[in-house]
Write a protein that binds this DNA or RNA. Structure first.
Lengths: 217, 217, 217, 217
DNA sequence: AATGAATGAGGATTCATTCAT
DNA sequence: AATGAATGAATCCTCATTCAT
């Protein structure tokens, strides 16, 4: 809940930024999300932001710089809860059941994404084409986050709440289910009526049953 | 197996196409998949295809035309098995168990995608930006395919093999799990060693358990 | 006389060039000579040539390419008479006296430059800033040409027509005198009335006396 | 010796200049000499000088102003020794022989240029493109200086030390020889080992012999 | 069917200059 | 005096598209 509204955070509350710079970032996020990075022109961003085109380049050396200055903090924030130092401790104390942990995590990240849909779209769409982003993604998500998740998974496997699959499979299946929901909810069919609580609950149950330990005879 | 190798099918075996046209399509697919539609120039495609720049426009009125002529048949083929007329019949006879049906479907589509990764990438990446594609996607996938799936889901729900959730949720969870695997397998970490049989089997079990009907007292 | 009119030769008579390409070269030469390479814009060249700006870049990858395609052949032609294979032979037979040789050379090169003043200006003005040109200049002029001149100088020193200074000094003084005349004549004060024959003759006499062998007692 | 080190004089010792102004001039001289006026940006100068971009324009209304404020005093200093009021008197008393006069002049100007190579480069390179400079050059060099030289030349012609050519030819040949040396020495081949004393002496002898009066029968 | 020269609008970026602080 | 953010025109260059051959 506390780290929602990335756009606010990386833009409005950032006192290092000029007024114009904020306008540029807002305009860039909107356009990149809507038409993609490559199909958005800097003149278009300038016009939307109400600044001169030169102003963009005073603050961001290149157009790609502008993109990275938007996406990099988003990726950092996106994975932040997975890399807080005392995730493990918190875990043992607060979430005795996997179900509660899953529920907390999903709610937390869903709220975060819900508050940052355009940024999320940009990240999803540009990672395949921007090697810098891929590098960041692999280094942070695939390594730091994965390490944490592995520990947590082993913890729940040891106390018998989780099937004994290789951790990466557990991660893949959980992540697929969660992102599958979020992508359907926010990117594919945002115009439909969604009962978020119920959808999340169903997703949690799906994961839990899908990953339930095998019954022993 | 039979409908694999889209690229071959929509290019090499298509006798309506000039030799040059085939070269253009191959070059375009390669470049679009690698750098994205917007970031690929027609002159680049011409060079890679070894044809004159003008030749592209003799066959495709615009660059977008070229994209659509690549993506539209791919989308059609992708969903083909779900819209064959006698899917339902085949179903009743061939797949008494949901597990067998799922296994057959996943194998079939995974092979298809495996044989058409660049095309799959293009579809995934361009749908968000091309309204024409979105329209096709929604009309075909979300409607035709969904109708079929709904029938099949109801069938398995009626004979007690499937949890009693709204069909769209069943579709979402199943699709998430399958695409989650495929995206990880082919797009995110293609360089890793994957034991495809085992991964698919684990995915099937995850879906089956996740969607197993509630045990009745 | 035969190799005058470089502009004609590198432009009008070159059948490899498009009509437009010729217009571009003419316009570029005129503008570069008048305002310098850096201060001439490609849009200006296009306008003067009556072609679209893009046309320039279809034929010359970059603006610098355009410059080099103008200057390189000029430099080659400029030094051509000094590197013809049988310069030495011709020399012995045709020019028994240093005076005749000097007169022939000066007339020849003066006519050449007279016919190519804008190109000569471009060469002079851009060499200090274009490393590629400096390289060409040093490799061709300073080495190939110098070797030839050295042989000729030694020849005239041996038969007692030339002072016994190091060849590079002889070259420097001769070149200074000739270029000094040409620069004054064509670049600094082209608007004055010059009696070319008389000026050249005076220059030749200046060089000859300046480089006359010391009288022996 | 006394008027060497123009850069020092027009910059460091000039108490009218702010500290920042001095930094700007130094940076501008370095950049203009290296890349040419047109190819040097004001932001580059600002960066090299360690001042804000705006600071340049506080002191120099335009970029061209900055150039002129560098070049004009250089041109003035360059010709200063030729326009001192009592050059003629000094002449009669101090330099009975043309040779001594030439030697003194060459040494003096060579030292001056040696101490101001970048400024000299800028003057040479920008005169062809800056009408203001051409005007100054013609008015001062070609007129004031030329008048003095004419008087001196006539003086030495009258006392039989100099050939009876039109003074402008004498000037041209002398100037060519001297500048020919300086350009070779400082601009074309500064990396070679030069024995300055010997080169200057040879140049003087070349001029003297080249301009020696015809022997009378 | 195929070419490739030609186009001119539009691309990202740099420029000299201004002005509020 | 000095700053540096802001400007928008101009920079070089690329683009998708056209058309005569």
């Amino acid at each position: 809940m506390s780290d929602n509204h990335m756009i606010d955070e990386i833009i409005d509350k950032n006192e290092n930024l000029t007024e114009k710079q904020k306008l540029i970032l807002e305009a860039a996020i909107e356009s990149f999300a809507e038409k993609g990075y490559a199909a958005t022109s800097t003149s278009e961003i300038a016009k939307k932001a109400g600044v001169a085109e030169g102003t963009i380049f005073r603050h961001y050396k290149t157009k790609k710089d502008l993109l990275l200055s938007i996406v990099a903090p988003m990726m950092a924030k996106l994975i932040a809860p997975f890399v807080i130092k005392d995730l493990n401790k918190v875990l043992n104390q607060d979430f005795e059941s996997l179900e509660d942990f899953l529920r907390a995590m999903i709610h937390n990240r869903a709220e975060f994404l819900n508050a940052n849909i355009p940024l999320f779209k940009i990240v999803l769409q540009e990672i395949p084409f921007q090697p810098e982003l891929q590098k960041q993604f692999k280094e942070h998500i695939a390594i730091k986050v994965y390490e944490r998740m592995e520990a947590i998974i082993k913890h729940y496997q040891e106390n018998g709440q989780l099937i004994d699959l290789p951790p990466y499979q557990v991660v893949r299946m959980t992540a697929s289910s969660i992102f599958g929901f979020l992508i359907g909810r926010y990117l594919l069919f945002p115009e439909l009526d969604w009962d978020d609580e119920q959808e999340i609950e169903a997703t949690i149950q799906f994961i839990l049953h899908g990953l339930a330990p095998k019954e022993k005879a």
